[in-house]
Design a protein around this nucleic acid. Structure first.
Lengths: 152, 152
DNA sequence: TTGATACTTAGAATTATTCCAATTCTTAGT
DNA sequence: ACTAAGAATTGGAATAATTCTAAGTATCAA
């Protein structure tokens, strides 16, 4: 009797979409789960190569796209810098540190999300909202644990 | 006795930043004010050429960058599509219509903005927030007037 | 086994934007 | 006015993230 592993979740979701589970997709997904620092495609590529040295960058892009389609990963953009990838599925905002370039996940309480949705006039039917802060993140003891999981 | 024109505001702001008012900067700014549909640099280029046929795309990029620096214009990004430019200085969110590609300004009441800022844990010092909706905008009689000013 | 389809791969192509070097324009000081 | 210094503009080359393409490889169903 065992728990479902992230890999199980992956193949499940892929199957649901009529897609196959492949070594490349699994390793890309695991890389995202193991170091939740919002890597770019290039960074994912570098990390995945440790395990699959012959993988191509195009495949990394393909896999990331696939994971986004399956709703296992979120693609995050700041201005025109390279897209970053995030396996956090909880509703959350992003904080982009202007100095370090690091990206932090910020938990979004449902109440705030509700408030935000009230600003839409009738006739605007939103399927998603993105909330992005930009500024400076100061290291505090309280946040060290969080940062270790979610900074990038 | 006359009102300050947008052009006055422009040269004022430029002067404040130690920059010069030039025909190119003025026309670029006027183009943004005249048709508030969140044009891309290319679109601005096309419109500006009607008045300044010899302007270069590089200059359009330079002017837009300058206007953004002076806080007269906001640069808006959706995923990795070309940066769009917006002369609306009021706090507002953006709604991006997935079907038409049009971008709408959504007024942001201070109360909601305050609510949103409460989600930041201590140590996160935000200098700006961007709120972006994605979805489908349905034309309603109530919004026709608004859309005429702010759609794009 | 075989055909059909899905996936991966390497490299070429695309595209928004920035960089560069050369020219032109402004301005301040004489 | 004249000139030197700095600012702005220009066209074209360069950059960089991403997508496309065509060919090869793997997987599945019959």
């Amino acid at each position: 009797m065992s728990h479902p592993t992230p890999t199980d979740a992956l193949s499940q979701r892929l199957a649901d979409s009529g897609l196959r589970s492949t070594p490349q997709r699994e390793v890309v997904y695991n890389v995202l789960l193991q170091q939740r620092d919002h890597p770019t495609a290039d960074e994912v590529f570098a990390r995945v190569k440790a395990e699959l040295p012959t993988i191509s960058l195009a495949t990394v892009y393909n896999c990331l796209e696939t994971l986004v389609q399956c709703n296992l990963v979120r693609a995050v953009n700041f201005e025109r810098s390279p897209t970053q990838y995030c396996p956090n599925l909880q509703p959350h905002a992003h904080f982009h540190d202007e100095h370090t370039g690091r990206t932090y996940d910020i938990d979004l309480p449902p109440s705030v999300l509700d408030q935000v949705n009230t600003v839409l006039p009738s006739g605007f039917d939103a399927s998603s909202v993105e909330i992005t802060f930009r500024g400076k993140a100061v290291a505090t003891p309280a946040r060290v644990a969080t940062a270790a999981q979610s900074a990038g």
